[in-house]
Design a protein around this nucleic acid. Structure first.
Length: 719
DNA sequence: GACGCTTTGTTTTTT
DNA sequence: ACAAAGCGTC
């Protein structure tokens, strides 16, 4: 007899949901109902009375996933979501550290540094030490610090063998004490501080270990070393750790994710229950077979083979363009055709390997009047004007936050220049105090008067803020600081003003949903980046990197830029593990498509201001030819795969305009013989853009070249 | 202290 | 190509 919650699940899914309270690893392939299993398990545990809501801890990687999980659980049963320990690693650690800030040795209102803030803080620490920022680029120092923290290593324990590593360690130590002095923590610190709190404080650890009877982890393949260690610390002798993941979708190794945690977990806990979810409910057979064929080229796998009951569906369509703009043109034509077929635009996604590729696609979409939305890029809380506003708010909450003070002490400008700031920094350094304290005791003089006015302004804000509602407080800060005025007078300031008003709205929402608490609002801003501020609105084509597409699905997916050097990316090839990660990325990209998958590539591409020519991606060779339909022949013969025998059925008509077949205004048509002053005789293979555009010529022994028609001085040759 | 010019570095990114 | 950040001048 099956429980009503699990009645509609397949046998593997049901088995996973109804597992006894023991450690389990669920290997859940793409589109196999992973989130459903996780949330149903939670609902099942609660509804069968096996645990109370307080005994549950569920952790995910992103805020979006956490929200989705909460929404699904509360849809299945009435619960107060606030009492639940469901959230991201960072969110839960933040919560625990705030509850026990005294034990953790942190001030009650500790601020959270985002990556930008962290970099600025590192630069300051390096200045204090007079460290050479050319030999020690702040970015690499950030990597060093975060890498160490993720391995649980403090500056005092860091190994150093030579002068270089000793300096790195020294900077790390300085940064550590600077953060402690200012009462701020970075992202990695949230996890490490929480880990250390539990490790050091035995009563607290025992409390949580016996409290959380069931710990469930989503996207386990994305956890790093420290996150796994944190989970181990929280899992008591009577607790069950339920981990869901897919090693084939591990695409974040480059930032510390450790797929090896899945194997370690099996070993460390002698996991008896390993369940594979291999039935895919998302994609048509051809898409799935193609994705399987690609991922099989990876050696480092736990092993899993997705299958579907669905029919084969359409073949995967392949388009090879001569230029990136032609590729964009293909996307526009094809998407327009699908729109005419009645496919909703937000069910169509254009995916790319790197953000730089979006620009030219956006151009084409704008020109065609197709609405689109780009994901990624600059987030709401990362915008300059928002960071400025938040810095004032942080100063109200904690005057010792030097990062915040430096950001706004002279913005808008109020006569406090670098010289004055250096004096303040020196004073602070000598007395071991914060910049704020140094500013309060600034002597006399013209610049000191300006500093005095700044101190007075912040103190005023601080006094006024007491008992004020958050949105009013923010409005007050924006006026008193002069930020409103500054952006009103700025020529292109309208959007920034709108964003500042959006910040007030965000605070209004926050107050109704959560609480009227400045510190909580600031923590939320650091942790959430402000994705929710992204406007919904009309249906639009979805543009994003493949990384951003993980976890999503679309009716039609356009996978672009399948060229060597771009995808797989050059920088990943030096390391054999890098190529496998790129291949997993390819796997993730393909499995986003439910019904239609298009793959495109271009022979040439504008990159860093230079035209780059690249052969087709090796991944294309890994897709069985039988699953492919070539929309056009590659211009360069055998540029990839074995030459295809594409089907001649006419169920599909390529919608592209035959622009490369028309005789252009310069009179050099494809197939014509031409003479170049330097390269000699050649044959025109392709061209784009007419007289002001480019032309591709095969010069035989000298190779095939793209030339600017206007400068190449090509001469047509008879015969 | 503010402004404009040169230099530089551009995979992926959540928290 | 392009943006941000650093540098030198007024």
């Amino acid at each position: 007899m099956s429980h009503p919650l699990t009645a509609s699940l397949n046998p593997q899914q049901r088995a996973a949901v109804e597992l006894p309270a023991e450690h389990a690893l669920i290997l859940a392939g793409a589109g196999s109902g992973k989130t459903r299993v996780l949330t149903t398990r939670i609902a099942w545990l609660l509804s069968t009375g096996q645990i109370s809501p307080a005994g549950l801890l569920a952790v995910t990687f992103t805020n979006k996933a956490a929200k989705e999980m909460l929404a699904r659980i509360t849809a299945m049963m009435p619960l107060n979501p606030r009492g639940l320990w469901v959230g991201t690693f960072h969110g839960l650690c933040n919560r625990m550290l705030r509850l026990h800030h005294r034990d953790a040795g942190l001030p009650a209102g500790f601020a959270i540094l985002d990556s930008q803030d962290q970099l600025a803080a590192i630069k300051r620490a390096m200045k204090t030490l007079n460290a050479d920022d050319e030999r020690y680029p702040p970015r690499s120092i950030a990597q060093y610090i975060n890498g160490n923290k993720e391995a649980g290593i403090r500056a005092a324990q860091a190994q150093a063998w030579d002068e270089y590593s000793r300096t790195q360690r020294m900077i790390y130590a300085e940064y550590e004490s600077q953060c402690r002095r200012e009462g701020v923590v970075d992202f990695a610190e949230l996890l490490l501080a929480c880990y250390e709190l539990l490790e050091r404080n035995e009563p607290l650890r025992t409390h949580y270990r016996s409290r959380f009877k069931h710990i469930l982890v989503d996207e386990f393949q994305d956890t790093n070393q420290l996150q796994y260690a944190w989970l181990k610390l929280l899992t008591g002798p009577d607790s069950a750790l339920f981990a869901v993941g897919d090693d084939d979708q591990s695409i974040y190794a480059f930032r510390g994710a450790r797929v090896g945690n899945m194997l370690d977990f099996q070993k460390d806990y002698e996991v008896k229950h390993v369940i594979r979810l291999e039935q895919n409910y998302r994609s048509h057979g051809n898409i799935l077979n193609a994705a399987n064929a690609v991922i099989e080229h990876n050696r480092d796998r736990l092993g899993k083979q997705l299958w579907t009951d669905d029919d084969a569906g359409e073949p995967i369509r392949l388009y090879e363009a001569a230029t990136d703009s032609e590729e964009a043109g293909f996307l526009v034509d094809e998407i327009s055709a699908q729109q005419r077929d009645g496919i909703a635009l937000d069910e169509i996604a254009i995916l790319y390997r790197s953000n730089a590729q979006s620009r030219i696609i956006e151009h084409a979409l704008v020109a065609a009047g197709l609405p689109y939305r780009v994901y990624g890029g600059l987030r709401f809380y990362e915008r300059q004007e928002i960071k400025h506003a938040l810095a004032y708010l942080r100063l109200i909450a904690n005057q010792d936050d030097d990062n915040a003070l430096l950001r706004v002490i002279n913005f808008p400008t109020r006569g406090i220049g670098n010289r004055t700031i250096e004096t303040l920094t020196d004073t602070a350094r000598i007395s071991g105090s914060s910049l704020w304290q140094a500013a309060c005791s600034a002597g006399s003089g013209r610049s000191a008067a300006a500093v005095g006015r700044f101190v007075l302004m912040i103190e005023n804000m601080h006094v006024q803020a007491q008992g004020m509602a958050l949105p009013d407080l923010i409005n007050m800060v924006l006026s008193v600081s002069g930020l409103y005025e500054f952006y009103q007078n700025e020529k292109e300031g309208e959007e920034r003003l709108a964003n500042l008003n959006e910040l007030v709205s965000a605070a209004t929402r926050f107050v109704t949903e959560d609480e009227n608490n400045l510190v909580a609002f600031l923590a939320n801003a650091s942790l959430e980046g402000g994705e929710h501020a992204a406007e919904a609105g009309e249906a639009a084509v979805q543009l994003m990197t493949i990384h951003a597409a993980k976890g999503l699905e679309f009716h039609s997916v356009f996978l672009t830029g399948l060229e060597e050097g771009l995808f797989p990316h050059d920088n990943s090839l030096s390391d054999p593990k890098g190529l496998e990660e790129e291949r997993r990325l390819m796997y993730v990209a393909m499995t986003r498509a439910r019904r239609r998958l298009f793959i495109s590539l271009s022979q040439s591409r504008m990159l860093h201001g230079q035209m780059r020519y690249a052969p087709a991606s090796r991944f294309l060779n890994e897709v069985p030819d039988t699953l492919l339909k070539y929309l056009n022949r590659g211009y360069a013969p055998n540029s990839f795969g074995s030459s295809s025998t594409s089907s001649t059925s006419d169920w599909y008509a390529p919608p592209t305009t035959p622009r490369h077949l028309e005789t252009p205004d310069h009179g050099l048509a494809i197939g014509m013989k031409v003479r170049h002053p330097k390269f000699g005789l050649g044959v025109v293979l392709n061209h784009e853009g007419g007289s002001n555009g480019n032309i591709q010529v095969d010069f035989g022994q000298l190779g095939t070249k793209w030339l600017a028609v206007a400068y190449a001085k090509l001469e047509a040759v008879k015969g």
